[in-house]
Structure formats: structure tokens, C-alpha cells
Write a protein that binds this DNA or RNA. Sequence first.
RNA 1: CGGGGUUUGGCGCAGUUUGGCAGCGCACUUGGUUUGGGACCAAGGGGCCGCAGGUUCAAAUCCUGUAACCCCGACCA
Length: 478
Amino acid sequence: MADNKKMVEEITSMNEDFAQWYTDIVRKAELCSYSKVRGCMVFQPYGYAIWENIQHTLDKMFKDTGVQNVAMPMFIPESLLQKEKDHVEGFAPEVAWVTHGGSEKLPERLCVRPTSETLFCDHYADIIRSYRDLPKLYNQWCSVVRWEKTTRPFLRNTEFLWQEGHTAHATQEEAEERTRMMLNVYAKVCEDYLAIPVVKGKKTDREKFAGATETFTIESMMHDGKALQSGTSHNFGDGFAKAFGIQYLDENNKQQYVHQTSWGMSTRIIGAIIMVHGDDAGLKLPPKIAPTQAVIIPIAMHKEGVTEAAEALRDRLAKKFRVSLDASDKSPGWKFSEYEMRGIPVRIEIGPKDIEKNQAVLVSRVDREKTFVSLDNIEEELEKLMDKIQKQMYDAALANRESKTSSAATYEEFKKIIDEKGGFVKAMWCGDEACELKIKDDTTATSRCIPFEQEQISDKCVCCGKPAKHMVYWGKAY
RNA sequence: CGGGGUUUGGCGCAGUUUGGCAGCGCACUUGGUUUGGGACCAAGGGGCCGCAGGUUCAAAUCCUGUAACCCCGACCA
């Protein structure tokens, strides 16, 4: 059978309609399901299991840097939300309000948290007195609500799951260091665990978080060439501290404002996993975070000893891997397609012929390559194959990004690339917001980030021709 | 919030033009035969056609209103 033959008819081909392909996968793989409230999704077991694996990975890395988990309330009084001017302006248009408690109208309406800066700040003002109280390194896992105009599963939900870290430090240097540290944690999780290459950089003032002095971001590229902001880390300086009165006494008995950071990664990253790795056969999950790393499919189960051999193999592999066995009476062919569609990295076939030869067949999700391995060392072989798949997936994603990344020195060139090829365009920028807006109006592309790794494409702004300050990645984004 | 589209068993759809017994495929249940890339036979169960009004002897079908969802834009993680 040809490798590229479409196995699952219910999934629209990527090239035909990428958006429909995405929706088909989410639905067919049972990642999430629509609920009665627009944009509020049911995270089904499989989708939630992916999130749990990401969560465990991140949580451990956070804690390794000294972060502690807390749980904040989900309601924010209007007066508290109002305290920092830029912040409220950024979020007010999209918050949901609670106006009644039971049948009684509340004296002050409460917003359902769209993010919890104000709650953390209010709390920090309560508990921070001395330089000995610093730093505070808190994180919470929760859901937040943003009343978006249009929604898409995982990419833009009304309510979504995330973590938000909030830290308070004695000095600006320390806050800056923490901001970069957490960005690096996100980049590591994306690249080493999710097999998604990222561009690390800084957001322009226009794109930065409401209330931040600077926002760092990791940007990834989807298979269709569109960009997705995959994690952000913000430096607040002492802006929030001044608005909320978060002060401490330093070693010299002087009042000082704290310097703060916040950083978050959301279930949106699941959308990135789908759109970076998936193909026409369905989802493709990196072994490190796949809820099931290998599925065992017995062949000719009615034959003597097959079921027993499959069960024994399952029990044995389960000691080291996340493995499952499908002993249902569906045909093997159906199971092959089904588990490919669900993105399980490795399929293990075991049938009468294998049992005779003391072997099993490992089949990779990425290229359907079959390896016949002895049962004596199947653990090592499976481990090796998963490492290979993890690397192949990263390499393929990187190759896609590289092939869709261009440079432009002139505006004509720039517009042509955005229009015809898409992807990331590296181009110089003068630093003026007017050029950013013009580019957006002309092309719908936005500045994705000012990458830490700068290149000199030319010495003039691609838009206005004035002297350039930075090289910027531009692109259309989700 | 603007433009377009959709809404009929769990899923995908036909039926609407021209009003007249609610259908098909998949899935599901039971029994049997199968099993190395979505098996086959047989017998079953399940829908007051998004919702609310209206016209009519009669409405999935015509009229009015309304909601949700999807796609494309503007806003966002």
C-alpha cells in the first residue's frame, strides 16, 4: 500500500482545507467536544491526558527552580481589576461579569478571572514586608475565561486551562533573570518534549502583555505556515507594585517596590501539537508526551496462544512504558488506522507467525516502517524507536519551518512573500509602531517577535526605509 | 462585531425547488463466519427534522422571528 494513501475518509486532507482538517482531527481523535456555551469545550479523556503529561513536565521544571503552587480565587472585584490602567484596558473588553449572588444583586460586580495578576498583586501587598520575604515564586494551575469574539478548539476557547506563574523580586535584575529563565523552560518543553522548534524573542510594544514592561515569547510555526505564540514570559518592572503598593523594607531600612514577572502556557499548545505534527492520517504525538506510547494489536486472536502472548507482552512492557492492548474484535486493519489517527507513536503487532519466531513487529507512526524485533530485547528496541520518532518529529517540524522562513529587504518583496508563500519573513524594522500597523493593514501579517538571535538583513526598515533598529520575524498568526 | 454557510437518530448526509407514512451510509445491539492495512452474512434498537410563533385538511418542506455552530475578516493565549 502506498504510504501517502489516505486511510481515514472522515478526515479532510490538509491541503484541501487545513482548518477543516484541524477540526476533523480534534473531533475524530476525541480530544475535545463542544458544550452548550460557545467556546467552552469539554476536554475529553484523551485530550486531557495530553494536557496532564504537559502539566507534569512543566510542573516539575517549575518546582526545580523553586516555584510553589497556590490556588487563587476565580473572582476579581471590579475595583481590584481597575487598579493597573494598562492592564484593565487590555482585558476589560473580554471579561465575563458576575452581577448576582443567588437572587441578590451584588454591591460590586465581580469578573471571572481572565488572568490573575491583580489577585496575586493584592495578595503580595498583604504578605510582603521585608527583603527577607523575597522572592515570592508562585504558580497556579487553573482555568481562565476570556469572552472572545470567535472561538476554535484549543486555539481560542472562552474558558481554557493554563498555568500562570507570578513572582515578586527585590531587584529588576532578578526579575529580568526570572523572565528569561521561564521562557527557557517553555522553550525546552516545546523542543525536547513536544518536538516543536521555537523562535525565542521579545514582543514589540504593540504586541506585549497589558501592563508589562517587556514580554518574551516563543513562536512556533504550524504546518500551514501560520505562527502560533506558544508561551510567554512577562517582566512587569515595578509598575504593578506601584499600582498595588507592594513594598518591602530593604537591608538599609528603606521602603522599596518589588519587581514582578508573570508567565503562562495554556492548552493552546495542544493545538500546536496537532498543527505542527499531524498529517492526513490524523494526529501524531511525540512519544514523550503521548498518553499511550505503544498499542499492541494481536493478529488472528482466535488462534491458540495469541491473546495470552499479547497480554503477557502488555504486562511486561507496562512496567516501563505507557502501553495499551486492543483485544477487541475489530479487524486488525481497522485498529491500524484508528491508532494512527489517534497519533500513537508505535504500534506493536503480534500474531501466530511472530509467536513461533519469538518476535513482534514494531511499526512507527511517522513513516509506517516495520521492524521485526526479538521478544528478548523488545524493551530496548522500543526505547530506541521512540527516541528515533521523537527526533524525526522535531527534525520534520524544523525542516518545515526552515522551508517556510524567508528574508525580505524591500517592501515589495515582503508583501509578495507574505501573500504567495506565507510563513515567517525576517525583515528589518525601524521600531516605529506606525510601520507595524501599516504592515498589518497591508498584509494582515503581524510582528511575531524580535528574535534574540539577530541577523542583519539590511540597514533600513522594510516598510519606511528609515534606519533599522531590529530584525523582526513577521507572519500571519493564529 | 461585519460577510458567507450550516442545523434532520451518536456521526456524516439525502429529502425542502413542487407541502402528503421521516429515509440512507457509518456507528450501536444480538448470533454466526472472519482476522498481517478500516471483513462478511443475518436479525434488531434508536429521530415529534435547532427553538418559538404563523399559514394549511395536512409542514422537515411555505412565512416570520430567534439561537447555536462552522468558515473568512477585525480583537486575543
